[in-house]
């Protein structure tokens, strides 16, 4: 059964999909303002992208300080190099691409795999009846499963499931062929699907 995954309050509205921002034309108007140095336009674009980029980076980096740093680096590029956006992709693809490259660089600088070691004292509760799983434990197992994926794989999951990007857009963001995106999705999805099955979401 999937009791624990069912929305508890059916009256609550569905969560906002992160990918559904303002129309592209509005974002491009803001970018035009930014190119003219208009801070108000930058502030508006910042507020639009802050939640989306933050959640992308949290999933990618799993380290709050690094997230803030890369977020700032990304938006600084948007402010300072708005003219380098060539309009051949969506604005969101360009901005997420900057965030992805900045994140990769930040991680490479530390030359450490992933900042998740502080959580390695966790114990795996093991499969069991769903009643055993509190929300905290579910989160923990999910974080563990996500942590076992590479950054590249997490990026594909995040950009598809939460930013609603097509595989072609994701390929543009992470700078790899579409086929690679599909392959990463297959393996990442299979890992998470295994967790889902463990939790009792089996056929």
């Amino acid at each position: 059964m999937q009791g624990w995954l069912k929305p508890r309050k059916t009256a609550a509205p569905a969560p906002e999909k992160a990918g559904h921002g303002l129309p592209e034309s509005v974002e491009l108007q803001l970018l035009a303002g930014i190119r003219h140095g208009r801070r108000a336009d930058f502030d508006t674009l910042y507020r639009l992208y802050h939640p989306r980029i933050t959640r992308f980076l949290v999933h990618l980096l799993r380290d709050a300080e690094l997230v803030d740093e890369v977020l700032d680096d990304t938006l600084m590029v948007v402010w300072q190099r708005a003219t380098s956006f060539d309009g051949r992709s969506k604005l969101s693809t360009w901005i997420f691409g900057i965030a992805y490259r900045k994140a990769m660089k930040a991680v490479a600088r530390f030359d450490s795999p992933l900042p998740d070691e502080d959580q390695d004292a966790r114990t795996d509760p093991g499969p069991g009846p769903e009643q055993q799983f509190g929300l905290g434990q579910l989160r923990e197992r999910l974080q563990q499963a996500l942590g076992e994926l590479s950054m590249d794989h997490r990026a594909v999951v995040e950009l598809c499931y939460f930013q609603d990007m097509s595989h072609a857009e994701i390929a543009a963001v992470v700078g790899c062929p579409t086929e690679t995106v599909k392959t990463r999705m297959f393996y990442a999805r299979r890992r998470l699907r295994g967790l889902l099955a463990d939790l009792g979401e089996t056929e």
Binding site: L138, R139, L142, L146, L192, R193
Partner: peptide, 15 residues
């Protein structure tokens, strides 16, 4: 059919 529960599962990781 597992796509919806997958999405709900991943929602738990929302920061």
């Amino acid at each position: 059919a597992a796509e919806r529960p997958m999405r709900r599962l991943l929602d738990l990781a929302t920061p």
